[in-house]
Amino acid sequence: MSSTAYFFQQFINALSLGSIYALVTIGLAMVFSILRLINFAHGDLMMIGSYAILMLFNAGLPVWTAILAGVAISGITGIIMERLCYRPLRGSAEMNTLLTSFAVVVLLENGAVLFFGPNTQPFGILNFIQPTLAVGSLLISKIDAITVVLTLAILILTALFIKKTTLGISMRAVADDLTASQLVGIPLNRVIVSAFFIGSLFAGLAGLLWSARAGKIFPLMGFIPVVKAFVAAVIGGFGSIPGAVIGGYVLGFAEVFFVALLPPDFQGYRDAFVFVLLIIILLVRPQGILGAKAMERRI
C-alpha cells in the first residue's frame, strides 16, 4: 500500500473516531454548561444503548427498528438518571455531584454486569453492510464513512437547533445566567431534561458506532470514552458546543496519528498519552483551544 493511501485511510479513521468523540462530547458539554456537572455516567449511556440494540435485534426486531429503539432507550435512561440522581442534588457542591456521577457509573456498570454478564459479547449487527467501499484505488471502511456522514448531518441539525429554536436559545440562556433565565420564565426543568435527553440520544448513537467499530461490547465499555470526551471538551473550551465538536475531532486525529506514528511497542500507551495531553492543556490553556471563557462565565 502506498504511503498516500495509508495516510488517507488513517485520515478517514481519525475522522470517524473524532466524529464519535464529538457526539459523546456534545452531550457532556450541554449538561456541563447548564449544571456545571461532569456526568461520568454519560459514557454508560453508550453501553446501555449498545446492549439495548443488540438485545432487541436478537429478539427478532429488524435491525433499523432495533437501532432506533435502542437509541431511544438510551435517551430515556438519561432522563431517568437526571430525575433520580441529579435533580435531588441540584444546587449542592460541585464535588458532590461529581462524586455522585461516579457512583452512578459504578451502579450502571455493575447493573450491566448483573444483567448481561461480565463478558465481552460480539457486536456484529451492522456486519451486513459491505465492509469496504472502493474509491478509485482507495478502500474505505464503510462503517467509517457512515459514521462521518451521519455525524455531519447530526452536527448541522444540532447547530440549527441551538441557534434557531426557542429551546436551543433557552439552553444557551441558562448556560449564560441561571438566575436571569429563571427570572425571564425559562422552564428550567424542561431545559435540563432536554439537554440530558438530547445528549443521551447522541450517546446512544455514539455507542452504536463505537461498538460497530470495535465489533464487541462489554459492561465497562463506556468509561474510557467518556473520560476522553472530557479531554475533548477541555480542548474545545469546556461548555461550548462548537468547542466540543472541534475538541472531539482534534482528539480523534491526535489519537490515531499517535498510534500510527509510534512503534508498535508503545501503542498500548495510547490512553496514557491522551491524559498527559489533557493535563498539559488544562495547565497551559485552561480556556481551551477555542479560547471561550466558558470556565469563568459561570459562577
Binding site: 461532569i38 460541585e94 473520560v227 472530557f230 498500548g268 500507551y269 491524559f275 498527559v276 493535563i279
Partner: peptide, 23 residues
C-alpha cells in the same frame, strides 16, 4: 487546577498509572 478540573486530571493520573502497569 481547581474543583472538577483537578478531579478529572487526577482521574487521568489514575488511568495513566493503570496504562503503565498494563504495558
Amino acid at each position: 487546577l481547581q474543583g472538577v478540573f483537578a478531579a478529572v486530571a487526577t482521574l487521568g493520573f489514575l488511568i495513566i498509572v493503570k496504562v503503565i502497569a498494563e504495558n
